[in-house]
Amino acid sequence: MVDLTTDLGKGLILRNPVLTASGTFGYGEEYADFVDFNKLGGIIVKGTTLNPREGNPYPRMAETPSGMLNAVGLQNKGVHYFVEHIYPRIANLDTNVLVNVSGSTIEDYVACAEIVNSLECIPAIELNVSCPNVKQGGMAFGVNTEGISKVVEAVRKVYHKHLMVKLSPNVTSIVDIAKAAEASGADSVSLINTLLGMAIDAAKRRPKLSTITGGLSGACVKPIALRMVWQVSKGVKIPVVGLGGISSATDAVEFMLAGASAIEIGTANFIDPSLSGKVGEGIADYCEKYGFTASSQLTGALLTD
C-alpha cells in the first residue's frame, strides 16, 4: 500500500495530494454525482470576498487552443453569506474544505480571513493575491514583493491556521514573490493562477471577453506552470502546491517530481467532472510501479543529472 498522506504543515494534513482548484469545483456539491469526496485531499472553494461581488459582464469565457480564457471577476455572495448558508452544508464533507480568500484592499483581506479563521471545519485558506480579472483586485498585491509582504503579513496576524498563498505567474520573478510570501508568514504557496491573455473575434473586430483580457488556464499552460513550480520549490522551504493544466495522474506526478508537495486540479474538472476523484489512485499506481512507498517521496524527485 502506497502512503498518500500529504502533510503541508501547520495542521493541514491531506489524505492524498489532490486538491481541486478554486473556481473550478464550485462548493463541491456541484460535483457530488461524479466524485467521492473521500478520494480527495481537499476542495478549495470558490474565491470568497468580504462583500458580495456581481463579477464581470458576459461574455466571460473564450475557448483557446487546449485551454480557455475566463474573466469571471470573483463573482460570489460574500463571506457572510458563505458562513451562513454554504458552510453549514459543506463543513462536514469527508475531505478538507479550504476557502480561497480574495479581496481588493488589505482591510478586506484581513476582515475576510478573520471571519474564516473562526470556522472550525476550515483548516486552511488559500489567499488569492493573483486574480487577474478584477481592477485593483488581488493581482495588484501579487505582482511585487512589497505588495505581497504587506497583505500576507496583515492576514497572518489574524489567521492562525494554515495560510496558503496563491501566486500569480504574471510577474518577472515568481521566485522573489514566493520568497516574500514565505518571509511574511505563509505556510505554503500554490501556483500558478491564470496567465493574463486575450482572444479576438476577427470577423466582429471585437475582443471575445467583456473585459478584453482574461486569465488563461487549461492544458496549454502546463509547461509554464511546471517550470515555475520547479523554480519556486528550489527557492523556498515551505511546501509548494502545483497547479496549471493538470489533466491526468501523470500530469500530477510531473508536478510533484518538479517539487510540488500537493497539486490542484482546475480546468480539467470541466472536461472530465470525475477526474479529481481518480488522480489519487493514479498517483499511487505510479508510486507502486516505480518503487516509491509514499507519494511524498515524489516531491522534487526529478532526475537532472
Binding site: 473556481g23 456541484e30 469565457m61 469571471v72
Partner: peptide, 22 residues
C-alpha cells in the same frame, strides 16, 4: 444558450443578468 465551460454551475462563465443578479 450562453457560452459555457463546466455545465454544472461551478465556473460561473455562462451567466445571464437577471432580476436576481447574475
Amino acid at each position: 444558450e450562453n457560452m459555457m465551460a463546466c455545465g454544472l454551475g461551478a465556473c460561473l462563465c455562462c451567466v445571464e443578468k437577471t432580476t436576481e443578479g447574475h
